[in-house]
């Protein structure tokens, strides 16, 4: 049975697009047929992170408005043959997304994919609401920082009220993905701790993605971090998170990049 997953957060810049690409690729690595859908109309980014920006012809809006067929707009990933991207339009605005049109596209995607991963725009307006509307499960991306936590709380409230599932009176499954986590800073009290965030948001934890250069490097080369640097700490955390989405029980650890010895740290710092 196909699952529609929305990656959302309320706040911008917390890692929704990075997480959409990384989780989408991780699910596809597990043998699933996956479509990642960019809902950030007007500020599209997912095509860049997926490295498909030079192959975009048609987009979500064209399909929603019936100007192109779904098969024409879907871009197949060059690295994984079960991973597809449905890009957003950069030239149109969010008003071009109609509620009925999005519903029709989602139904059509359900027919041919196991997972449909929707990258929500930031904010709590129409675009974000349309992205979450048809979801079966939500991943709430949060940084360990007060403003991000409060915005996530707001989005959780909307997931419980404005999705089709919630309107049918069903329970909307929600998972917390804590990104840009720096254990050392959390220990020094410069960041919220995992337990504090969990206590405030009270939804189950899907994974903790450590802050790492590997994420930025992967974006720069146009590849999900789970494909570009599969051995890196964030990639391992995303791969574990994807397995948990599929229902596997995976012990929760915060992966760390290879430890640099004390000498290395000293010299590293001196060199920098």
């Amino acid at each position: 049975m196909s699952q529609v997953l929305v990656v959302t957060s309320g706040k911008g810049g917390v890692g929704k697009t990075t997480s959409t690409a990384a989780l989408g690729a991780a699910l596809a690595l597990g043998g699933n047929r996956v479509a990642v859908v960019d809902f950030d109309v007007g500020l599209r980014n997912l095509d860049l992170v997926m490295g498909a920006e030079r192959r975009v012809v048609y987009d979500l809006i064209n399909v929603v408005q019936g100007e192109a067929k779904l098969q024409q707009a879907l871009i197949r990933d060059k690295r994984l043959e079960t991973l597809y991207l449905l890009p957003a339009s950069q030239t149109r605005d969010k008003d071009a997304l109609t509620s009925e049109g999005v519903a029709r596209v989602m139904e059509e995607l359900r027919d041919s994919f196991d997972w449909i991963v929707c990258d929500s725009p930031a904010g709590i307006e129409r675009g974000a609401l349309l992205a979450m509307r048809h979801a079966d499960v939500a991943v709430v991306v949060t940084n360990p920082e007060v403003s991000s936590v409060r915005d996530s709380d707001r989005i959780i409230g909307m997931l419980d009220a404005k999705t089709e599932k919630a309107e049918r009176g069903e329970y909307m499954e929600k998972h917390l993905l804590l990104t840009r986590y720096d254990a050392a800073r959390a220990e020094r009290g410069q960041m919220l701790k995992v337990d504090d965030v969990l206590e405030i948001l009270s939804i189950p934890l899907l994974g903790i993605i450590p802050e790492s250069d590997a994420v930025l490097n992967a974006s720069n080369v146009g590849s999900p971090v789970t494909l570009a640097a599969a051995e890196s700490a964030p990639a391992r955390a995303y791969l574990d998170a994807a397995r948990r989405l599929e229902g596997d029980v995976v012990p929760m650890i915060i992966p760390a990049d290879k430890r640099v010895g004390l000498m290395g740290k000293l010299f590293g710092r001196r060199a920098a």
Partner: peptide, 8 residues
């Protein structure tokens, strides 16, 4: 019986 979320 549910948490009251920000904005509610």
């Amino acid at each position: 019986e549910t948490p009251v979320r920000s904005g509610q």
